[in-house]
Structures are given as C-alpha cells and as structure tokens.
C-alpha cells in the first residue's frame, strides 16, 4: 500500500530548528516500520539519522515517537499504525532528552540516572553452595524488572519529567532498582534506598501510567514504582 511517512528532521550542523519531511513509500501492511525507515534511508535519503540494531525488539536501539506514542520501530508493523491507502505515519524522536540528529536523542542523562540507583547485584557473602538457592516463586517476584531493555520509551513518555520535574529520576531507573531490591539473594536495599529516597528520586512519580502504556516489554512499571514506594515507607516506619 502507498503511504506517507512524516519524519521530524534536525541536523545540528545545518538546521536552527526541527522541521518535518515527508516521504512517499510503498509498503506491505506486515512490514516493520524500521524496515520502511531504512528503505527510505537506503533509497531516498541517506542523511536520515536513526539508531538500530537487533530489529526484533530486544536491543532497545530504535525507540521513537510514532503517531504520538513511544514505540520500537522494529516491533511496529505498518498495519499497526497506518490504515489503508494514503495513510500518514508521523515519526518523531523521543521526548525529554536533547535531540542529537533526526531520530537520535542524547541518552546520557537517562543512563546517568540508571547508574545512579546502583543497578547491580550486591551480596556481602559467598553462597553456601555453588549457587545461591532461590525458589521459582522468589525468582518470579523480580521477573518484571529483568525484562527491561533500557530503550528509554518510559522516560520519554513520562508526563512528570515533561511537565513537573525535569530532574525526576524516571521510571526505568526505579524499575532497575526494584529488580535488585526484590531479589531474595540481594543485600543492597539500604544502599539503593539512599539513591531513591530524595525529592527528585522516586517521589515525583504521580502514577499517571504513561510509562506502563508505552513499555514495549509489557512491564507493569507504575505498579513496580508504587510497590517500591511502599517498601521504602515500610522500611522507614
């Protein structure tokens, strides 16, 4: 089917502000949007800036705003976002981070916040046996957080960062902290508590569920944040 892809463009070396460029393409309804974007890049406009790698939704490189919603371009089929001949798909870079070029944003702040929560396993002692024992139920308790691919979608969609507090730690960092806090083998809760329990830490979250809505891994982010808040409150009282 013939569709139009409207892409927000910006090249810091030649543009003073972003603008929209339209490309007409012939695509199959089952094509991945990423394939269509790369086809545009390969045959119409090689200057189009885009990050990509695995192309099937596990590396987290190609999150962008598609028809107003954060999605992975490789996990979005044309039929998901364009209905019928002549449909228009609008593609923009992620929000809440500086644009580097076209669909690429500067993710340093996102990763800085991620690293801030000490997102790594901490244990003071060696396991008694070769492995730490953990039952399937204990393992299941932190399943949600292990699915995160750090694609930045939730950070981009967060209305609190956008409207209330640009310094908010953001959803992904909290999910990563929870992944370890809820792991029966881990002993880093108190250290991580200090990284979450401050005004720009976990508390700005207003449970607006945008993060949960856009997460391409289906993580119940808002719920995880609320459970973490409760865990901190219980610990303090």
């Amino acid at each position: 089917m013939k569709i139009t892809v409207e892409i927000q463009r910006f090249n810091p070396e030649s543009d003073s502000k972003s603008y929209t460029q339209k490309y007409k393409v012939d695509a199959e309804p089952t094509d991945r949007l990423l394939t269509v974007l790369l086809d545009i890049k390969g045959t119409q406009d090689p200057t189009l800036g885009i990050r990509k790698s695995c192309a099937h939704g596990v590396c987290g490189s190609d999150a962008m705003v598609i028809n107003g919603k954060e999605r992975l371009a490789c996990k979005t089929l044309i039929k998901d976002v364009a209905q019928g001949e002549g449909a228009v798909i609008r593609v923009e870079p992620l929000r809440n981070l500086p644009i580097q070029r076209d669909l690429m944003v500067d993710q340093h702040k996102f990763f800085k916040n991620y690293m801030h929560v000490k997102p790594y396993f901490m244990s003071s002692e060696e396991p008694k046996e070769k492995e730490f024992r953990q039952t399937p139920d204990e393992r299941q308790k932190f399943e949600e957080g292990t699915k995160c691919i750090l694609c930045v979608s939730c950070y981009s969609a967060c209305p609190v960062i956008q409207e209330v507090n640009p310094n908010f730690l953001g959803p992904a960092a909290i999910v990563q902290a929870a992944r370890f806090n809820d792991d029966s083998r881990d002993e880093g809760f108190e250290e991580r508590l200090l990284q979450l329990d401050y005004p720009d830490g976990i508390w700005p979250c207003e449970s607006r569920f945008e993060c949960t809505r856009v997460c391409p891994r289906g993580i119940k982010i808002t719920k995880t944040i609320n459970l973490t808040k409760r865990k901190i409150q219980q610990h303090k009282s």
Binding site: K130, E131, R133, P136, E138, R139, E143, T146, F180, D183
Partner: peptide, 19 residues
C-alpha cells in the same frame, strides 16, 4: 555459570531452588 549466578544472573529455577 556459577560465577554468573553469583554475580546476580536471574536463572530460571528448579523447585529445589537450583539453576
């Protein structure tokens, strides 16, 4: 594999809690 587990890798588990 044990080193990875000891570094926190979340392996799926047997009912006894082993990898």
């Amino acid at each position: 594999v044990y080193e990875l587990e000891n570094k926190g890798l979340p392996f799926s588990r047997t009912p006894e809690g082993l990898i």
